[in-house]
């Protein structure tokens, strides 16, 4: 067999094995093969800002999930969490590249030209320039906290992506179409665990309920709309997160019901209520993001001229 000779294995073509890797090992251009024309009449700055938020959510969440590696409660869960992290990382890469394409001004100044846009944005941006929601920032707590956060995050993100698959931006539409089945799996996985833990033992019930209570103060922000999002919606490239509230509340209440958990109160907002206020999307972050980035960016920043 071909693998009898390790040297051959080094030089031969991937030979069909490439699709085993979430996003291949060879591709350098995150947008390769995707129609990347920009539709006419679009406010590029707003469109880029909108895409950047979606990218940063995925990047930071993927990073936090990757911290679970070698700490999961079961080997099957090691595989599943790595899989979810890989999916999100793939989404982040494509969206970061698109954001920089739409608005080259997002690329931090002074980053050497050989560094791809996705890495310039991931490794050479300061915390205040990140546009992710605060939900994804906290270091991982116990498995109950992980399940609660993943359930909330993937329920919300799936609702967003579902709407974005009809975006006028062909890249956003393509990324969303690919990501919908991925995030549907993430949501199923989290919901399955929420039910197992909620309707498991007294201890597991308590822990997942505590997890849900911990992430709940960060939920309202998910439905806040920024100016950039409003513009992107008007241009037909974006989605207004406020429109996902009803779907989110419905899914959470059904999962909590199965899990014998009391759903934390969902605001039942009507006309005239004050709208939710964006935080992370406007660069207001918790201290946890600064710590996360200090670690994530350490090697890249120590070798700005390095080749990886």
């Amino acid at each position: 067999m071909a693998f009898d000779n390790a040297y051959e294995a080094l030089t031969e073509d991937a030979g069909g094995l490439g699709d085993r890797w979430a996003h291949g090992t060879g591709f350098q251009d995150a947008l390769s093969g995707v129609d990347d024309t920009v539709p006419a009449g679009v406010d590029l700055t707003a469109a880029a800002r909108h895409v950047l938020g979606l990218a940063d959510d995925a990047l930071v969440m993927a990073h936090r999930l990757s911290e679970w590696c070698t700490h999961a409660p079961e080997l099957e869960e090691e595989v599943a969490l790595a899989n979810i992290a890989l999916d999100l990382l793939g989404q982040a890469r494509s969206l970061l590249a698109r954001a920089a394409q739409l608005d080259p001004g997002l690329r931090p100044a002074g980053v050497p030209g050989h560094v791809p846009d996705e890495d310039a944005l991931a490794f050479f941006r300061a915390a205040e320039d990140y546009r992710n929601v605060r939900l994804v920032e906290a270091p991982h707590g116990d498995f109950g906290h992980l399940v609660a956060r993943l359930l909330v995050f993937s329920t919300w993100r799936l609702a967003l992506l579902d709407r974005l698959s009809g975006s006028r931006d062909p890249v956003v539409a393509a990324v969303a179409a690919k990501a919908v089945p991925e995030v549907a799996y993430h949501r199923d996985h989290a919901a399955g665990w929420a039910v197992r833990l909620g309707d498991g033992t007294d201890e597991s019930h308590r822990r997942v309920a505590e997890g849900l209570a911990e992430v709940w103060p960060l939920v309202e922000e998910l439905f806040a709309t920024t100016d950039a999002e409003r513009t992107a919606v008007a241009d037909g490239t974006g989605v207004d997160p406020a429109t996902t509230r009803a779907e989110f509340a419905d899914v959470l209440s059904r999962v909590c019901d199965q899990a014998t958990l009391d759903p934390p109160g969902m605001d039942d907002r009507g006309a005239g209520d004050a709208p939710a206020v964006p935080r992370g999307r406007t660069g207001q972050h918790t201290a946890a993001l600064r710590d996360l980035l200090a670690e994530m960016q350490s090697v890249a920043r120590a070798h700005p001229e390095g080749r990886w």
């Binding site: 992290a85 990382l89 791809p116 890495d119 490794f123 994530m296 990886w308």
Partner: peptide, 26 residues
């Protein structure tokens, strides 16, 4: 090194590799 991989491509490759190892163990 997962949390310090210096490019997103390397981070993805390393994560996939470590995931494979969990699968091999299984």
């Amino acid at each position: 090194w997962l949390t310090r991989a210096p490019s997103l491509r390397r981070k993805a490759i390393l994560l996939a590799k470590v995931q494979d190892e969990a699968g091999h163990g299984l």
